[in-house]
Design a protein around this nucleic acid. Structure first.
Lengths: 330, 330
DNA sequence: CTGTTAGCGCATTCAA
DNA sequence: TTGAATGCGCTAACAG
């Protein structure tokens, strides 16, 4: 099924069919109907590949994610998919696996496929390289503070949200609050740690460095971190994990030791993964709408592509109080 | 950067460059080197779109999933991505949202983009339609028993695995075993229910239909189902949920009522989601390697595309005993 | 072994 | 308003 066959069957020229398909010019009503009939009869679908070649646009945007199976970024991918679908764009997902070299490969792959833009979800690529890419195609990037032409970065106020999370614990009367941080190289992790510190400081509480232990954002590291914490025999009545997955790990470690949540220690996470509503007890956490993040990123990309001014709405973060935190006892 | 510019810079014809790029024919070593230098100098990347047009192959395969953010199928997508990456294929993910009409749209979108094949992860489209599509392009489909040219279906023995899961409970001494089933229209759900029934029957235990309640594979429905079950005031000491997500919901409902797992009721799920290792207590479940499923599907697709004979390795399912099941008390 | 010549299916000039 | 001609970047005969 080609456009030419449609044209022949409708008794018009290929250009006319193309015009009708794209609304590029006015066409006599009778011809339009003939063409539409032909399209229906033949079950014709325009070849997006050919169209891409001709127009120089592929109608697809690349998305570099770290792991397509990440419970947090999944939701973001969904948001991207939804925002792009309307205007006929398709996302092309590639995984960088937290690896700078791999990420560069991904970018090359996307460039080779002539995507019309790339959305980078918190990548490892350095800022300079990224600005270089922005010279060639529109870029939307999350979790970074970058300014540049052809580039928009979407940020969430991790620092403030971490402050709020820690503050929630403080308000509940906790003074010995441990923190499981994310990888030191990760900007989000740094900001969350900073927010934790600021909250303690503003509350005139000491920051005990021994109460801060580092994980890698996965469940296993949360479990490990908590065991480390326990080995120090330091006293603490509350725990702030830099993401929900690590909170899950910590929660299991606590369970293993017979330490109750929230009676013995209050636990708060960060992300509000869908499953956090179903942990036992349901996890108090910071909601960042991963879905909205994706949606906003996709919309920004569309604006970038079409040359419009981009406006990025604020993405609010807020503490969702559930049952894993409670007033300090005694 | 086009192939033509590379040719000019290397002092050869475009065809020669193309041959070197594709290994289509032997080329004099000196020219090869000149071309390779030119490619490096220019930072040239072949235009996959143009190549697709010329060859009639897009080097991409469509993947129809129900929800790109599904914790189970995520892993599968990852497997697909990995298996396709080697030979230079890229997956194009689209979500059907458990909706037959939407799925048809997805298929149209994929056809319009001229994907070289489509992998359908347990779709809602009926078999006949699917066989129709298989006339036009290679199809790999999971969770169904279909035979046909240009089509391979990958199945897991859900019935046997559900039997094993139920049997595990029976061996632990449970005789009153409830089941939270998946949607009646879903083949996997049907098979799991059948396996549950067969296990009871083989153990000469009565099948109490009131102990079977239907969910939709999401957490919330598991919670709801359990509450329904509790309202009947029927006695049961074990529960088999047709997937882990519903098991999570059920587990929370139990927690809310102060019913202990596994002391008061043993709980077993199905899927072995990554997070099932971190629930409290860690969930006994049936492992189906979602990742392997994807890998196998991707490999089958590659074989189909290249016209090779397809061989689908068996995908074993097995019960992973963790801490949510125990011997029946008293 | 290599260059020349046609398309792949479509959008887009340019004329009419 | 419409058709004919041209080209997007590449591959694949076809000659040599």
């Amino acid at each position: 099924m080609t456009l030419e066959e449609v044209a022949r069957r409708a008794g018009v020229s290929p250009s006319t069919v193309s015009r009708i398909l794209n609304g590029t010019a006015r066409v006599r009503e009778s011809k339009r109907q003939a063409v539409e009939r032909a399209i229906a009869d033949l079950g014709y679908h325009p070849n997006v590949i050919a169209r891409g070649l001709a127009r120089g646009r592929s109608m697809s945007v690349g998305v570099i994610t770290q792991d397509i199976a990440s419970p947090f970024y999944n939701e973001t991918l969904k948001g991207i998919e939804d925002s792009l679908a309307g205007p006929g764009y398709a996302p092309l997902f590639v995984s960088g696996h937290w690896n700078e070299a791999k990420e560069a490969e991904c970018m090359a792959l996307l460039v080779a496929r002539r995507v019309d833009g790339v959305i980078v979800l918190t990548g490892m690529i350095d800022d300079a390289t990224l600005l270089g890419y922005a010279l060639r195609l529109p870029l939307v990037i999350t979790g970074r503070n970058l300014r540049g032409p052809n580039l928009v970065s979407i940020q969430l106020d991790n620092e403030q949200a971490a402050f709020d999370a820690t503050w929630h614990l403080i308000e509940l009367g906790h003074t010995r609050i441990a923190h499981i941080a994310g990888p030191e190289s990760n900007v989000d992790a740094q900001e969350r740690l900073a927010g934790y510190r600021r909250a303690l400081t503003e509350a005139r509480l000491p920051v005990d460095e021994r109460l801060i232990v580092i994980g890698d954002f996965h469940e296993a590291s949360g479990l490990l971190a908590l065991n480390q914490l326990l080995e120090t025999r330091l006293h603490f009545t509350a725990l702030f994990a830099a993401n929900d997955q690590m909170a899950y790990g910590a929660r299991l470690a606590l369970y293993r030791k017979g330490i109750r949540v929230p009676e013995d220690v209050s636990l708060i996470g960060f992300d509000d993964l869908p499953s956090s509503l179903y942990t036992t007890p349901p996890l108090t956490t910071v909601r960042q709408s991963a879905y909205d993040l994706g949606k906003v990123a996709g919309e920004a990309m569309l604006q970038l592509i079409s040359g419009q001014a981009v406006s990025v709405p604020a993405l609010p973060l807020r503490v969702i109080v559930r049952e894993s935190t409670m007033l300090r006892r005694g």
